[in-house]
Amino acid sequence: MIQKLLRRKPPKDTLYNGNGSRPRSGLVQGESKLMSTFFGLAIALGLGTLVTLILVANNRALATRGKVFVQMADGTTQLAQEFDVNYRRPEIIKETAVRWMQLAFEWDNRIPGDDKAVDEGINFDRSNKRIPTKVYLASYLMEPGFRQEFLRLMASEVIPIDVMTGRRKSVLRFYSVSDPRQVAKNRWEVDIVATRIERSATQELGETRVNRTITLQSIPPVAPVFKDGDPEVWRKTLYELSKNGLMIVEIKPLNL
């Protein structure tokens, strides 16, 4: 009786065989390794498919993008990198704004680019009032309509008469020039803090604040086309101003 009580049957378990032998642990471990292998292959296949789809999309985008060819100095043609034709680098925008301020507010009776030539001024509206050539050149950076208004104001109210006789000159002192900030599509603003110092041959005549916010807009740049002989000096300056592809559409006082 005691022997029968001690002979207890093992519990039923699917891991036991019919003879009550030990669990089949080797078979379970083999199946686990096989499943891990299949799982790793599935992940690798999925990643490979994703990378392939990305490459196909990029190649399709490149295939539909326009190509630009340029002719080099030696006559050969090369493929140029495509870019937004209305994009302007910040340093170019700042340079254009500063250059305009210098032309508009640094006065003397000399032709730009030729210190030996005396500037007789330009009569722009068939009146007796003349303005320095520098100021006239500055107006070419401005929007039509706005340009004529600017010239009339400078001639009648801003520029002293004795500038054209050479008795008065002026120079700008820049204190700060802000980085361009985009205010609309293809349009930027630059804040300039400066003063205009006027002087005669023997003394300083005064210093005036000329703080301005200048709004510029991108336009197609003008490439200079020179034929036989050099153009006039002021025409060279005009081409240099136009090549940046920027036009001034608004100028307003900067209140600090």
Rank of each mutant, 00 (worst) to 15 (best):
E240N: 10
P160V: 00
P132R: 02
L27W: 01
Y87H: 05
D162G: 07
A61S: 13
D125E: 06
M35A: 12
K227V: 08
T165N: 13
D179A: 12
V118P: 04
M247Q: 15
V249Q: 03
A194D: 01
F69G: 10
L62N: 13
N211V: 04
A155P: 01
E106A: 07
R60T: 06
V68K: 13
G245H: 03
N186A: 14
R22H: 13
V193Q: 15
A223G: 06
L6C: 06
I197F: 05
G229Q: 04
D119W: 00
A138Y: 00
N186H: 12
P224A: 05
G30L: 09
L153W: 04
A194S: 09
E82D: 13
V98L: 04
S32D: 15
P132W: 01
V177P: 12
M72A: 11
G229A: 07
L55P: 08
K252P: 05
P253L: 03
R212T: 03
V163S: 03
R199A: 12
G26M: 09
G18K: 14
Q78H: 14
S178F: 01
Q102P: 09
Q29R: 15
L141Y: 00
G66T: 11
S178W: 02
L254T: 08
Q217C: 02
L137K: 02
I161G: 10
Y175P: 06
Q182W: 00
V171D: 06
W234E: 15
V28L: 14
V222T: 14
P10I: 08
V171G: 12
I92T: 14
R8P: 07
S200P: 07
Q182I: 01
R130H: 08
E232H: 13
F39S: 15
V68I: 15
N17K: 08
G113T: 00
P180V: 04
F39Q: 15
R181N: 14
K94H: 02
R196S: 02
A80S: 11
L55K: 15
R167E: 13
I54Q: 15
I43Y: 05
P231H: 03
E189H: 07
P160H: 00
K252L: 09
R199N: 11
I161H: 08
F105H: 03
K33H: 08
K33G: 07
